[in-house]
Design a protein around this nucleic acid. Structure first.
Lengths: 217, 217
DNA sequence: TAATAAAGTTAGATTAGTCTAACAAATTAA
DNA sequence: TTAATTTGTTAGACTAATCTAACTTTATTA
């Protein structure tokens, strides 16, 4: 049985490769994702290697073993199912579900997750638009295209957010954006890296960083 | 923010006084309830005293402070609400809910519990018949009378179980008993401490210990 | 390619929660 | 009321997860 901490390291490793496409994850990057010091991550990697959850050698790159990946996907499945439960059944808002799910994802009971999945009618996406792995660990492929990739004058549909932090999500809501909204890119000011978009007839300016955190199709 | 462990000590202290009516809880009793050694409990008591959660002095009796009691009641509220959720919404059986709720009860979010309470329509009793404290910490008084108190020839209604362990609950189901069932005490054999009961027309022999763990009215 | 910077590791310390073994206090019984 | 038993505490050690500070390796750049 893995500890909360071990599960978090595995999840972070998978998340980093998912989000950044970067399969050359380093100690610093991992440590900063988990908000610990590199020394701490370095220690933990030894332990995870010992348990055959990661492959790595000193100063080399870190990769999940197949066992590690399966486990990480399971943690993500738990996280996203709980988020969906909180949002759909308990009527939490979009930006509140992540932090509570961070705790709930570590409850150990396969049966609990299977029954929760059924209760929610086997959802394929969580409230942030992220795909939920099924009981076999399979998930729908997610668009890698962000609002930053849409050229001036074109429209797209928002399907998910990259950053799941409460602060970002609150901002997204403030801007009037949500999953499935149609967004039109009106113009870009290269000088200050601002994009002017239109959503439901309302025009807003957003930063480059903002556009890179909105997944679209 | 209290740790899981601290919460478990407080809950155990309250549970012991509740269940046994014994307000003179000792280190050994507490330790055995938590499945740790007395030395460990002794150490933890210092810490809980430091945090003003228990009153106690060396070799003296242990009592919860008002803060400690409030916290313990809150842990019990969380536990019983989660049990109710598992039983009513996820269709877990009676004997499966306790162990999972032991984990869920430590999720920290007041809003989560309030919303869960509402989602379940403010239940007053959990699947084992135990009262669920409301958001103010108030709970329905529970019968202290057990099946052992019913005299030969008389009938009663089962309202709760004292022992919540999966093994006991499985046995209760096997015997054909459940909450709200009417039980008639047919006879008692003082020699081997056996009671013969009738439930739904079926006669069974149960031990003294069994009858002491069934609350009735 | 040599110097500098960045990234990663090791050593030693800390905290929470646990243990065993030895000891001390309180209670029970002879 | 003394001896035996039970109950409770202390001391010292261990593990997991973390830290800081010092050091090593790898990468970058002048």
């Amino acid at each position: 049985m893995l500890s909360f901490t071990e599960e978090n390291y595995l999840k972070a490793l998978l998340q980093i490769t998912f989000d950044s496409g970067n399969d050359n994850v380093g100690t610093n990057e991992l440590a900063s994702a988990l908000d610990v010091k590199p020394a701490t991550a370095s220690d933990m990697l030894k332990k995870l290697k010992e348990k055959s959850l990661v492959d790595y050698k000193k100063y080399g790159k870190i990769t999940l073993t197949s066992l590690g990946k399966t486990t990480a996907i399971d943690v993500i499945r738990r996280h996203r199912l709980w988020e969906t439960f909180l949002f759909e059944k308990l009527e939490f808002s979009w930006d509140e579900v992540h932090d509570i799910a961070e705790q709930l994802e570590h409850i150990h009971s396969q049966k609990l997750i299977d029954k929760l999945d059924k209760f929610l009618d086997f959802p394929e996406f969580d409230p942030h638009g992220d795909p939920i792995p099924n009981e076999k660990g399979e998930l729908k492929v997610q668009s890698k295209k962000t609002l930053a990739d849409i050229t001036t004058g074109n429209s797209c549909k928002m399907v998910a957010v990259k950053d799941n932090s409460s602060s970002f999500l609150k901002y997204v809501v403030e801007v009037g954006l949500g999953i499935n909204n149609v967004i039109t890119v009106l113009s870009r000011q290269e000088f200050d890296a601002i994009t002017i978009i239109e959503v439901n007839g309302i025009k807003t300016s957003v930063s480059k960083r903002f556009t890179e955190n909105i997944y679209v199709i």
